[in-house]
Write a protein that binds this DNA or RNA. Structure first.
Lengths: 191, 191
DNA sequence: GTCTATACAAAGATAGAC
DNA sequence: GTCTATCTTTGTATAGAC
């Protein structure tokens, strides 16, 4: 694997565990077996590395939703929702893991501008996608709920982000599953 | 004011902005006008200060709910819920602010044990309290919702914690208000 | 209780050899 | 591309005078 990729992978895992100001180039160097000075060749400053990590994460997560074409794939809205939630369930079941951007939300105000922009973009993108799904799903008669789709999407996405942080402190491996089950019930799932 | 109190106040604000590993004794010293060495007299190590900050926050927030005696104060469940949510609404409307424990959830895995215990205790306490309110409120006919009160409390509290983090990145001052309005509708508020 | 002074480790980053 | 070596700043923490 390319060194740049190894660095990204290592940095992503370290940020999830310790936050941005909680990991160092030395940590990465130790993990992948190079010297910390070598990291600067690929990412001149720590802010550059941070931005690249979030950018990749953001793209990866956006593709989950964007790759779902309801008509072409013959999916109903419930199936699309389940596929969208799949990576989140995985994070929820893996001890110690959380959403990268949720973690970085804690230190948001002291992060470099480029990183802030990526994080804000991620949240905005995710909420917009979920809003659209809820909206069209309700119009199609699949989901049933009161109020605006946007508000419901904000509540549900907030619950996911918050839940992924809280579950790490409880050690309850099913914390997220329960939240998602409840969320699906709110959309008219199995009442 | 006592120096120890000034230190706590400063530390709490700094943690909310920059996270635990993102602030230093120097930051506090600058804010309250003493030398950083003096801080060690009140809190020997940074971990001691961190634990004290969370402990105070946890107690303060627990008292919000525990001070509400429905029978004695002649409150109905909706009023109790509104009073419980009041401090959260305040956080939501103050730019840059978030829940202290939500912020620290991002760096949870690298925090000292004593701090982890306080954070986990805070989440547990809050969810338990909310669960009880939802449970008794439904029994009293005030709230209407399907499923277990505990699951609903986890979803709602997760949405609060996640929402308080996300709203800092959007600058939307009404982000939390909208989530709470939606949450109240889910409990059978104004359908 | 607060100060000066200092020890010590670790951080981000750069220069230049290979 | 990666290395060694080094610079500079900042961090936590302690000792001892006042």
């Amino acid at each position: 694997m390319e060194t740049a990729q190894k660095i990204l992978n290592s940095a992503e895992a370290l940020i999830q565990k310790h936050g941005f100001s909680g990991f160092s180039f030395q940590d990465i160097a130790d993990e992948i077996g190079i010297r910390k000075a070598s990291i600067h060749y690929h990412y001149p400053a720590k802010a550059d590395l941070g931005r690249a990590v979030i950018q990749r994460y953001r793209t990866r997560m956006a593709e989950v939703g964007n790759s779902l074409d309801l008509k072409e794939d013959g999916l109903n809205h419930w199936q699309a929702l389940a596929l969208y939630l799949e990576p989140i369930v995985q994070l929820g079941r893996t001890p110690g893991h959380a959403c990268l951007c949720g973690v970085l939300g804690g230190e948001y105000l002291s992060l470099p501008d480029a990183m802030q922009a990526e994080i804000a973009g991620y949240f905005d993108e995710q909420i917009t996608w979920l809003t659209d799904l809820l909206d069209s799903g309700r119009a199609a008669g699949a989901f049933r709920f009161h109020g605006s789709a946007g508000e419901m999407a904000r509540l549900l996405f907030g619950a996911i982000e918050g839940g992924l942080l809280i579950k790490r402190t409880t050690g309850d491996i099913e914390f997220i599953d329960r939240i998602l089950t409840t969320a699906q019930a709110l959309l008219g799932g199995e009442p």
